[in-house]
Design a protein around this nucleic acid. Structure first.
Lengths: 159, 159
DNA sequence: TATAATTAAGATAAAATAGTCTTTTATATT
DNA sequence: AATATAAAAGACTATTTTATCTTAATTATA
C-alpha cells in the first residue's frame, strides 16, 4: 500500500509532532528512536523539506522541525508529498484511461472504498496520531509518545 | 496498492471469465487481448494454477481455463493468491506487532477502511466484473467483453 | 577563528520487482 | 510415428526501490 519511504515519513513526522515544543531535532535522534536507517531518513527529510512539511537547519544545534502545527498537518499531506497524489487517484486495475466517464469494471466500487481512505487520511492530523500514540500504551518512560521501540515492548511501560 | 503481477492476474482471470464457454484458452491469446507481456503472463498463470484458480493443459489445443465458475471466484481469491493474504491484514504503518490488543496510532481508523476494502473484494466475483465490463462500453466488435484495447479506444465501438 | 555538530548532495550497493529468452516436456492431430 | 502446438521451467536482464557511504557545506559556540 504505502512505500517504505512513506511509512518512514509518517513515523518521522509523528515523532516531531510528539516533541513539538523543542526547536530543531537532530535527524539522528529520530532515526534512533523510530528505528529508521539514518542515511535513508536524511533523504526522506529532504523530501519533506521540499514539500514544506519540515524545515531544517544545518550545523550545531541543527536538525529538523515541523513547519506548521501538528494539528494542521494531515496524514494526507505527508502521503501525497512522498508517494504522490496519484496514490489516491490511480485506477486499481492500472488503467491510465480509467475515470468516471470511462470506468474500468471495478471503478465504481473502488471509488467508494477510495473515498473512505481519502477521508480518513484527510481527517487525521499528526496531533491526532500523537494523542492516539499516548492512549495506546505507546509511550516511553519519559511519557514522550512516538517511540516505536516502546510499542515493540523493548522498554518497560510505566503503567 | 496492487503489484503488477496481481493486476495482470485480475485482467487474465477476467478474460477467462468472459469467454467461459470455450475450453482451454492459449496464454498467447490472453496476452495479446489484454496487452500483458506473454512470458511474464505464463509465470503468473503458473501461480494461479498452483492456487487452483486455473487449470492448464500443455500441447496442441492446450491453454488455461478457470477451475470453477466465474461466479464463485472473487476478487479476493485472486488478490490473496498472488499478493498474499497479508495485503489485507498488514499494519498500514508497517508494524508486525500491531493488532487489536496492541494497536498502532492508526490501527482503528485503518481497520474500518480496510474492512470496506475486504468486503468489496469478497463481494465482487469475476462474473460481476465481466458483466460490468459489458455494461461500461468495455466490449469489442464481437461483443466479447474483457479486451483492454477496446477500453483504450484502439478499436471502434459497435454502438 | 577554530572546532564540533549537523544537514546536503552525490555516488554506490543491495534487494525486490518486472520482464525476456531459451530449452524441455506434454498433447492433439495427421 | 511425425509434426505442430502450447505450457513448464529455469536462466538471464532491466528497472525500481531501499539502503549505505563519503565528502562538502553550514552553523553555533568556545
Amino acid at each position: 500500500m504505502l512505500s517504505m519511504t512513506c511509512i518512514y515519513s509518517i513515523w518521522a513526522v509523528l515523532y516531531l509532532a510528539s516533541v513539538d515544543d523543542r526547536e530543531y531535532i537532530p535527524i539522528r535522534e529520530i532515526s534512533e528512536q523510530m528505528e529508521i536507517p539514518f542515511h535513508f531518513l536524511t533523504k526522506i527529510l529532504q523530501l519533506l523539506a521540499k514539500a514544506d512539511i519540515v524545515t531544517s537547519l544545518r550545523g550545531a544545534k541543527g536538525g529538523v522541525r515541523l513547519n506548521g502545527l501538528s494539528k494542521k498537518i494531515s496524514l494526507r499531506d505527508v502521503i501525497e508529498a512522498i508517494d504522490g497524489p496519484e496514490i489516491f487517484t490511480d485506477c486499481i486495475l492500472g488503467l491510465e484511461e480509467c475515470n468516471d466517464e470511462n470506468p474500468c469494471p471495478l471503478h465504481d466500487k473502488w471509488s467508494s472504498a477510495k473515498n473512505e481512505i481519502i477521508g480518513m487520511c484527510e481527517d487525521t492530523s499528526f496531533y491526532d496520531l500523537s494523542v492516539n500514540a499516548m492512549n495506546t500504551r505507546w509511550i516511553n518512560n519519559s511519557g514522550i509518545p512516538g517511540f516505536r521501540k516502546i510499542m515493540f515492548g523493548k522498554y518497560s511501560n510505566p503503567d
